[in-house]
């Protein structure tokens, strides 16, 4: 088994972990976005609250959410380790810095990742933690015989505050830039580079990196202005 450890410790192995966890998180973003778009329904939050209940109580989803937490942590910790070791490998920086040979985002993935991580802490502290800790009001609906946490109320409350909306916007800009490089980069790390298909992957990545964070960003803005 020592080969697995030495593989995971090799430079390419480490990058492979970043790539696979990153791609998993990309898929998660899609799932998360689809659920959250229910916040834009004008049903007083009923469907969203039921969805939130389902997501936190279904055993299968509960189990996979542990996987998610693990991958987020792995992606973050591995990312930090790589960034530190890369900084060490570079030694000192040049007196003149230039973006002539690469994009700003590609060179600042660690910074963007840290911003996203900070955003995630605020985001989860505000919603996930309150829900798990039972700090939310409960809501009852006719078609079910149990009460569910009224996460919707909390969301509306949070997004009625301008500073939180701004934090979300910053978080989504960071996410967009992170994805802008990360999406196609993950494929390159997996060794998938082909004259025919790479331009398609790159196009898809750029589109994804704009549309998904934009859709996420619409939610707080929409709620701030409408509720």
């Amino acid at each position: 088994m020592s080969w697995i450890i030495s593989f995971l410790k090799s430079s390419i192995g480490r990058k492979l972990v970043m790539s696979l966890t990153g791609l998993f998180l990309v898929i998660f973003l899609v799932v998360h976005l689809i659920g959250n778009l229910q916040l834009l329904y004008s049903d007083g939050g009923e469907s969203f609250n039921k969805y939130a209940y389902f997501m936190t109580n279904n055993p299968l989803i509960k189990a996979s959410s542990f996987g998610l937490y693990f991958f987020i942590l792995l992606h973050a910790i591995q990312g930090i380790i790589i960034a530190l070791s890369n900084r060490h490998a570079k030694g000192s920086k040049y007196a003149v810095s230039t973006n002539a040979n690469s994009t700003w985002a590609s060179k600042n993935m660690a910074l963007l990742g840290t911003l996203i991580l900070a955003f995630l802490c605020i985001h989860m502290g505000d919603f996930w933690f309150r829900m798990k800790a039972g700090l939310l009001d409960m809501a009852a609906y006719d078609d079910i015989d149990y009460e569910v946490a009224n996460l919707y109320d909390r969301v509306v409350y949070s997004f009625s505050q301008l500073w939180i909306v701004i934090i979300y916007l910053i978080g989504m800009v960071a996410l967009a830039l992170h994805l802008n490089h990360g999406f196609s980069s993950a494929f390159q790390t997996l060794g998938l580079n082909h004259k025919k298909y790479t331009p398609i992957i790159e196009g898809l990545g750029k589109t994804f990196s704009i549309l998904v964070p934009l859709a996420f960003a619409i939610i707080p803005v929409f709620i701030y202005f409408t509720k």
Partner: peptide, 11 residues
Amino acid sequence: EGFGMCSNTKA
């Protein structure tokens, strides 16, 4: 040899 890891900046 102490080289860093590729982060695909393509520089």
